[in-house]
Structure formats: C-alpha cells, structure tokens
C-alpha cells in the first residue's frame, strides 16, 4: 500500500441529494473514486446520470436550497472538503481546485474585460498589485494561445468567439496553478475542429502545470482522446471503472457496451448504430435492484431485486457493477 502515491482527490461514498416535493432523492449515490496525481479521469454517462452533480459536489457549488451532500467524504490534501466552512472552501475554489464549464458563451461576465476577469482570480488568491495581475493575465492568454493577446486583454467577452472564450475560461482556471482541474463538458458546445484544439491544449497544460483532471463528458470519442481511466456513471452511481484501453477493448457492464455500440465511428456505417432503448430513470423512480435492469438485454430475475455492488471484474483495476457479465465481455 505504501508504494501507492496519495490520490490528488479522493471521493469516498459521496452521496448528493436533491429535494423534490419535500422529499430527498439521491442524484449521486455512494460514488467512490480516486483521482491520482497527473491523471486524467473521464466521467461518462447520459444526461441525468449525475456526472455534473458529482463535480459540483466536490466544489460544493450546488444551490443551497434544494440540494445537499448527505454523506461521504471528498478528501483533498488530507482535508475533507465536505466539512470545511464556506470561507475555507472559497480559498480552495479556483486556487487548489478549479473548474471549467460547458457553456463558454455564458461563463464570462459580459460587463468586465477579459483581462480584468483573469486578473480578479489572481488578485483574490495571490494578492499583489493590479499591474502584476494584469501582466500574469497577459502571460496566461499567451499560454492558451489567444492571438494578439495584448490587445485582447482589454476586450469584452462578446468580442470573442466560443472557442476563444473557452480558452479564456481555461486561462482563468489555470491562473492560480490548481492541483486539480474539474472540466465539465468543456468542449461540448464547440465545433469539432475547435474541440480538437482545446482538447490537445488541455492535455499540454495538464502536463505543464502537473495537474490532475476530472473530465466530464458524454462523448466517448473525447474520452478515447484524453483520458487515462474512465468511470461510467448511470443513474447516479459508477457502473464501471477501468483504464481507457480496457474499457474500449473489453467493456464489462452491459450499459458500457451499449454506449459503445451507440457511438458513431468513422470506420463503420451508421446502420450499425444501436440506440439504447428507454431512458435514464427519473431521480424519484430509480429501481430497487440494478438501476439499469429495465433497459438491460441480459437481465436476470435477481437483477430486479438485488442491488449489485461495484466489484473487481477479475482484471486488475477494472471494477464493474454487474453480477451477470456474460463471459468474455458483452460485445
């Protein structure tokens, strides 16, 4: 055990609940996963699978009314973020753990220049003079490869395109050299060529800054490009956790396999695409047994009553939440 490096971020049995008509329903159910130093962990799943809520729970950014972290720990540098005060949390947000969001068009304040917005984050966490912060902002804009950064510094967000704004968001997130970067579908709103640029840039910056990255996406193509390990989420829980190679080569959970078959590929025709029947269960109507059972072609009688645990699949480091698992994977 001692030979293992300490994880950069360690989620243990994290449980986040939402209130719907005066009852609390879990949106994230007992998620345990470790993010190792310099690792990129992708979290994939359909809309409503709890992947964004997991990231927002880590930084405790969920709305105060109607959402609560009901249990579990978020360990970061020996501290449990769940128990910190709001003030202590503020000094972690943006400083040690930063986050970038899906919508670059609305994630910047329209009334502030881009330079001021980047400088603001530096001033809060690092102090120093406005001049120094502005100089650092300029350096960051150069680092994320914004053309003619000097004149861009004093422009407003509406003068930037979507891809440029996402780079500005990345520059802001990097301003204080965070240890962990939470990326919530950062390329989803961008078109494909820009998406590839931003992805390779994130990868470069991750190496340069020595960060760990939690990368949330629903795009398996993006996962293959950027991730080291993948956690597949369904209905608020992790159903499969594996290295990216193992997951693509030998998916163990029927849901993962179905996701892969539903993914368009350049080397196959679209007639091979198989949509997954049904949809993710509503928060208030998660089945008692396996959450995926109602949509699963391999389900057995026990699947409907017995909630499966996330256990080793037999291969080292490959966990799966499915007791049925047809031999040789579910291809």
């Amino acid at each position: 055990m001692t030979s293992f490096p300490r994880p950069a971020l360690d989620l243990r049995n994290l449980r986040t609940e939402f209130r719907i008509r005066d009852r609390w329903y879990p949106a994230v159910r007992n998620v345990s996963v470790s993010l190792m130093p310099n690792e990129t962990l992708a979290v994939v799943g359909e809309s409503g699978s709890g992947k964004s809520v997991t990231a927002l729970s880590i930084l405790r950014l969920l709305p105060h009314a109607g959402a609560r972290i009901q249990g579990g720990e978020v360990l970061f540098e020996g501290q449990d973020l769940v128990t910190l005060s709001e003030r202590e949390m503020s000094s972690i947000r943006g400083n040690s753990i930063a986050m970038i969001f899906q919508e670059p068009m609305t994630s910047l304040n329209p009334t502030m220049t881009v330079g001021d917005q980047i400088a603001e984050a530096i001033l809060i966490h690092r102090g120093g003079s406005r001049m120094q912060a502005k100089a650092e902002a300029l350096r960051l804009l150069e680092e994320v490869k914004i053309p003619s950064p000097k004149s861009r510094l004093d422009e407003y967000p509406h003068q930037f395109s979507g891809g440029m704004r996402q780079r500005v968001m990345i520059a802001m997130a990097l301003a204080c050299h965070p240890r962990v970067l939470l990326a919530d579908e950062p390329t989803t709103a961008l078109d494909v060529t820009i998406q590839a640029q931003v992805l390779s840039q994130l990868e470069e910056l991750k190496q340069a800054y020595g960060m760990s990255m939690l990368f949330i996406t629903h795009n398996l193509g993006v996962v293959a490009q950027i991730a080291d390990r993948v956690a597949v989420m369904y209905a608020g829980e992790i159903v499969e956790l594996a290295t990216v190679d193992a997951l693509f080569a030998k998916p163990m959970h029927p849901y993962t396999a179905a996701l892969l078959r539903a993914m368009p590929r350049a080397d196959r025709g679209t007639e091979n695409l198989e949509p997954i029947p049904g949809s993710v269960p509503a928060l208030s109507a998660v089945p008692a047994g396996c959450s995926y059972a109602p949509r699963c072609p391999f389900k057995e009688r026990t699947c409907l009553d017995l909630h499966p645990e996330l256990v080793s699949s037999g291969d080292p480091g490959h966990l799966v939440r499915c007791p049925v698992r047809p031999v040789g994977g579910v291809h």
Binding site: R93, G94, S107, L108, A121, H125
Partner: peptide, 15 residues
C-alpha cells in the same frame, strides 16, 4: 445568480 458566469465566479473562489 443562476447564470454560468456567477457559478464560474464561485468556482474561482469569489466571495
């Protein structure tokens, strides 16, 4: 307060 840039601001540690 539900706009992305306000949430992004909170994620950057703004009080």
């Amino acid at each position: 307060k539900q706009q992305d840039f306000v949430i992004a601001g909170r994620a950057l540690g703004f009080g």
